[in-house]
Design a protein around this nucleic acid. Structure first.
Length: 472
DNA sequence: ACAATGGTCC
DNA sequence: ACTCGGACCATTGTA
């Protein structure tokens, strides 16, 4: 284990991770660990587990992850995460309360409009009741079928919104309701009364792709992009007027990693020439259009991300709302243009079938079990995971390394600035105003040079008086 | 308590 | 028999 200089911090970490759950016997094929609720015994900096087979939990990590957890940089990251959690995040609760009021008023208004249209009161939050109103009472044509009838999700409602005002009203209502219940209300609830701050928990061991997760509250899915979302984000403030919020954001990190891993010349050139990668994809996907509108760029972006996520014609057609034939054509065009990506993917799968695992750029492994399964659905699922994992986990590793290095830097120089949040490819800091130049420069330096890739990593840095979304 | 549905983020 | 990777959370409705 890493040596923790602070006894309080150390006991916090042991509490958090090792009190109830520790790895005992590892079962190679299922990623299952036999664990026990027994206390851990602390002995010479080592956690020793007292066995008891009364519990079994399913943790997604492989044996390699746990080895790294103990001997590699995950243990150093543990300390950084604990410090972030200790610091907490300041929030402007008065402003948040005001937003709550505003949203409440708007919601009431839209609610009344909806009731007026249908001449009836019903619970708009209930999918079942919305189904009844739309499809039975108003006889609106249905689209997507689900288990219990016809879907009334965003996609289905958007589809009929141009003909039926009620659909767009419900969409508006839902959006506000979502913001209110999941974000504003939840944040207000978890603000600590004494400190006025919020306290999230970062989980290091819950995802199967090496990313962190955040809960109670989840700070990694705060919405952005529209008026109220930005209002909510602006409630995240520095802990004192001496600080400012710095957001450091890896630019297109997963596509850059894909370019580095595959060595595809087209992708590589695009990044070396600082082209807009989504525009580039759009240009040959929709070649018949001379100008690339923002809509076409958005669709090309979906294709680009689809490739990272392990593409399939069916899935892409669903997210892009096009026919399967059209989606398949986009995929074919993509692989035609970026042909080395295709070879790279084939090689990954080939190697995975032979060895049973895929690995990240830094050599971490994940064992994939169902690559030769007789059931096609299972097999394809395994293939998608196999293709996505090296990319997503490599980028997760990169930002984790950056967090450790930046923390070491701040510690060594005895600076006041602090890392306060992580959102997958984005780090959020509180920077003391006197340290602004120095720290900003160093953060960029560290993040961009985690590894000397042929295609450099790029970081966008922006400084705000509160937490706004950094530009894409 | 739990399943189904829906929605937000990278 | 109908799938794009990874997360967390709310509400309703059924058990």
């Amino acid at each position: 284990m890493a040596k923790f200089f602070d006894i309080k911090l150390r006991s916090y970490i042991f509490d958090k991770y090792f009190k109830g759950v520790w790895f005992g016997e590892y079962l190679e094929n299922t990623h299952n660990f036999w664990v026990s609720p027994e206390r851990l015994v602390q002995n010479n900096e080592k956690a020793i587990f007292s066995f008891n087979d009364s519990w079994k939990v399913n943790l997604p990590q492989t044996k390699e992850f746990w080895l790294d957890f103990v001997f590699g940089f995950e243990s150093e990251l543990l300390e950084v995460l604990a410090k972030m959690e200790f610091e907490w995040v300041s929030i402007d609760s008065e402003k948040l309360a005001k937003i709550w009021e505003e949203i409440e008023i708007k919601t009431k208004k839209i609610e009344a409009e909806i009731y007026e249209v249908v001449w009836e009161k019903f619970n708009i939050n209930s999918a079942k009741q919305v189904q009844e109103i739309l499809f039975e009472k108003l006889k609106i044509p249905t689209s997507k079928k689900i288990k219990t009838g016809f879907s009334v999700d965003n996609e289905a409602l958007s589809f009929i919104a141009k003909d039926y005002a009620i659909a767009s009203l419900i969409l508006d209502y839902r959006w506000l309701q979502k913001l209110q219940s999941t974000y504003v209300q939840w944040l207000l609830k978890v603000i600590n009364k004494q400190t006025g701050k919020i306290h999230t928990t970062y989980n290091q061991i819950k995802t199967s792709t090496g990313r962190l997760s955040s809960e109670n509250p989840n700070l990694q899915n705060i919405p952005s992009g529209d008026f109220f979302s930005d209002e909510i984000k602006s409630c995240f403030i520095p802990s004192s007027p001496d600080y400012e919020i710095l957001v450091a954001d890896y630019s297109q990190v997963e596509l850059r990693i894909l370019a580095n891993l595959s060595g595809d010349p087209e992708l590589t050139n695009a990044f070396l020439n600082s082209e807009d990668i989504h525009n580039k994809t759009a240009k040959f996907l929709f070649w018949e259009n001379t100008t690339i509108t923002s809509e076409l760029r958005r669709r090309a972006k979906t294709v680009n991300f689809g490739v990272i996520y392990g593409i399939s014609g069916f899935g892409l057609s669903k997210t892009m709302n096009v026919s399967m034939a059209e989606a398949t054509e986009y995929i074919n065009k993509f692989f035609e243009k970026y042909s080395r990506v295709k070879t790279y993917y084939e090689n990954v799968l080939e190697k995975a079938r032979q060895t049973g695992y895929v690995e990240t750029f830094f050599g971490r492994r994940r064992y994939i079990n169902w690559l030769n399964d007789a059931n096609r659905i299972i097999k394809w699922q395994a293939e998608r995971e196999a293709l996505n994992m090296p990319i997503q986990w490599t980028s997760a590793d990169i930002i984790k390394l950056a967090m450790i290095k930046i923390d070491n830097f701040l510690k060594e120089k005895n600076l006041k600035s602090k890392l306060i949040m992580q959102v997958h490819d984005e780090l959020v800091f509180e920077i003391h105003k006197t340290e602004l130049q120095l720290v900003q420069k160093e953060i960029r330096e560290i993040m961009e040079n985690i590894h000397n890739f042929p295609i450099k990593l790029l970081v966008d840095i922006s400084i705000w008086e509160n937490w706004k979304k950094a530009k894409e």
